[in-house]
């Protein structure tokens, strides 16, 4: 029977909203990805962790720099000994923006019965992977977490309703929830950065506040060269150079999230 252009446009207009919604459910992120491709000329931040240089001491410095700057509460060693928690509560309430864990946990499924002996118990620095196709953004019912055009997976802690769907969605355990008021557990409050309230989710935001002022993320600055940060879309950026020159691995790449934290082992 055929359909002319005019009718097609009318139909398309009618389907407009529902069509976009259906598309979102079946091919989540595709619309955004297509838009992002056209903006490829812009910035796409990424991080390379050079495990040859990352000693436990360096890693501790990175964590310290990040957590102090961003008012992350310390439930393991509270500033006031009277606030000390049971082992169970420490474990349950812990907030991690950047942390370390052994190879077997960081790269589940990669372990071999016989492997390079240095890998045994090697502590990897872990943080939000700022995925290209982030499941946390896909599941958030209020767009409190969203992906910026430069690749940063952001959190609006004033919009978050605390449903924790993003925590179920994240395959890297990169998100933490404020099970209680975190403020008494912040060793020294940094007045230049907001503290959080009860009942919202938080995570690494790749120091977007520092990037806005032309500075590197705090962990990168504290790492003494073990962390390499830069723009993937720029051919001569340090991250591109590192990725060209070395074999790198990523956490759970087979899930299709396209994580943007790379590891030189």
């Amino acid at each position: 029977m055929g359909i002319n252009r005019r009718d097609f446009l009318k139909l398309a207009g009618l389907l407009g909203l529902g069509g976009k919604a259906a598309f979102e459910l079946v091919l989540p992120g595709e619309v955004e990805a297509a838009v992002a491709k056209t903006q490829a000329a812009g910035t796409r931040w990424a991080l390379v962790v050079d495990m040859r240089k990352l000693t436990d001491k360096v890693a501790a410095r990175c964590i310290e720099a990040c957590h102090t700057l961003h008012n992350v509460p310390n439930y393991l060693e509270p500033p006031d000994p009277k606030l000390a928690l049971s082992e169970d509560l420490k474990n349950r309430w812990q907030i991690k923006w950047i942390w370390t864990d052994v190879y077997e946990h960081a790269f589940v499924g990669f372990e071999q019965d016989h492997q390079w002996e240095k890998l045994q118990g090697m502590n990897f620095l872990l943080l939000c992977n700022h995925c290209d196709n982030p499941p946390c953004v896909r599941v958030c019912p209020t767009q409190a977490t969203y992906r910026r055009p430069d690749g940063i997976v952001m959190m609006d802690m004033h919009r978050c309703i605390g449903c924790r769907f993003c925590m179920a969605g994240c395959p890297y355990a990169a998100r933490s929830f404020n099970w209680r008021d975190p403020r008494p557990y912040i060793p020294k409050i940094n007045p230049d950065y907001p503290t959080r309230e009860i009942g919202v989710v938080e995570k690494c935001l790749l120091c977007e506040e520092r990037l806005a002022q032309g500075q590197q993320p705090a962990c990168v600055e504290a790492s003494g060269g073990a962390l390499i940060f830069g723009n993937l879309n720029e051919e001569n950026s340090p991250v591109r150079a590192a990725l060209r020159a070395h074999y790198t691995i990523r956490r759970k790449p087979y899930l299709g999230t396209n994580p943007q934290v790379y590891y030189i082992v």
């Binding site: 459910l25 896909r138 209020t142 978050c160």
Partner: peptide, 29 residues
């Protein structure tokens, strides 16, 4: 049960203020 599970029930209506069709929770509501 959904309401008692929310960290911020005072912001419940953000679900309606910022409708998000790519979230299954939106459809569940």
């Amino acid at each position: 049960f959904i309401i008692v599970d929310l960290g911020r029930p005072d912001r419940l209506f953000n679900l309606i203020k910022y409708p998000t069709p790519n979230s299954v929770l939106f459809w569940d509501m």
